[in-house]
Write a protein that binds this DNA or RNA. Structure first.
Length: 277
DNA sequence: CACACTACCTGGGGGC
DNA sequence: TGCCCCCAGGTAGTGT
């Protein structure tokens, strides 16, 4: 499930449950989610240290790891998130990952791959059924390397920047919006929803969109994201395309036409042939 | 260069 | 009940 809104929700989890807490234990229950770091190293770097203020870019979530003094909370603010000096935890949730805040003694769920015990009453868990992505331990330079490969964050990108990102792209809008190096954070559901709202057919070539259409896509993206971030997921509302895509015989919530479904750039794509000509 | 296809993983659901 | 195949909201690598 994780697209930008879900990951933003996980950031909130870290903010309310993890920030400023000291990590007292790291239990790696399945090392298959570790990327480029061993379980012992993850443990030795984290244990005794505190979690800083998390930040997100696209579908990536970063958490600076700060020295674990006795004082709780108030870590000295450094120059910008990416300016953190020490180690940084980097999460990517793939298709099935999540980050949950649980009671410290709550029994782990089958897919809780890593349990971070904190000095408060709670623990954080990286839960992930499919293990398509995972957890890394890096530093500011590593974060920069990751972000260099990403376009502007979909939640904060303004219209001119958005237009520049898509300008001259040869691919279909659908594939360009799904390309994290163009715009970071959109997943398959969001893209379908945004294009449906903007009344743009998924196979439209990005370079064929005029200024007005691009603005419409940007506006639709903003609205869809705003609601989705609030709900911490892309909500399956009946008034949304997302609320219909799994119906047996899905119809457009706007015009009632039968929805089309097919593959565009390798992903299942749902659209309304009437609203999105 | 845009696209198709595969691989990485696991589990749920439908058909038989 | 069991088995097989397809499907899933992600990404990276390879070939055409």
């Amino acid at each position: 499930m994780p697209e930008l809104p879900d990951v933003e929700g996980f950031r909130q989890v870290l903010l309310s449950c993890g920030r400023g807490c000291r990590v007292t234990g790291v239990r790696v229950r399945d090392a298959g989610v570790l990327r480029g770091v061993s379980a012992p190293r993850l443990r030795s770097v984290l244990e005794g240290r505190r979690l800083g203020t998390p930040w997100r870019h696209g579908k990536w979530l970063f958490v600076p790891v700060e020295d674990g003094g006795p004082a709780r909370g108030v870590a000295p603010r450094r120059e910008g998130a990416a300016g953190a000096e020490g180690p940084v935890l980097a999460f990517h949730f793939g298709m099935t990952g999540s980050l949950r805040c649980c009671a410290r003694d709550e029994a782990p769920a089958p897919h809780d791959r890593i349990v971070f015990t904190l000095d408060g009453p709670r623990s954080l868990r990286y839960r992930d059924q499919r293990k398509l992505q995972g957890v890394r331990l890096t530093d500011a330079a590593g974060v920069d390397r990751i972000c260099e490969g990403l376009g502007p964050d979909a939640l904060s990108v303004h219209k001119p920047e958005f237009r520049d990102a898509l300008a001259g792209r040869r691919g279909t809008v659908k594939s360009e919006l799904m390309d994290q190096s163009v715009i970071a954070g959109l997943g398959n559901l969001l893209r379908d929803e945004i294009l449906w709202r903007a009344r743009v057919a998924p196979r439209t070539a990005a370079r064929d969109m005029d200024e007005r259409t691009l603005r419409g896509v940007h506006t639709a993206m903003g609205r869809v994201l705003k609601t989705s971030v609030h709900d911490r997921r892309v909500p399956p509302r009946r008034g949304w395309l997302t609320g219909r895509r799994d119906d047996g015989d899905p119809h457009c919530p706007r015009c009632g036409s039968r929805l089309r479904s097919g593959r565009v750039s390798g992903r299942r794509t749902v659209w309304c042939p009437v609203c999105q000509p």
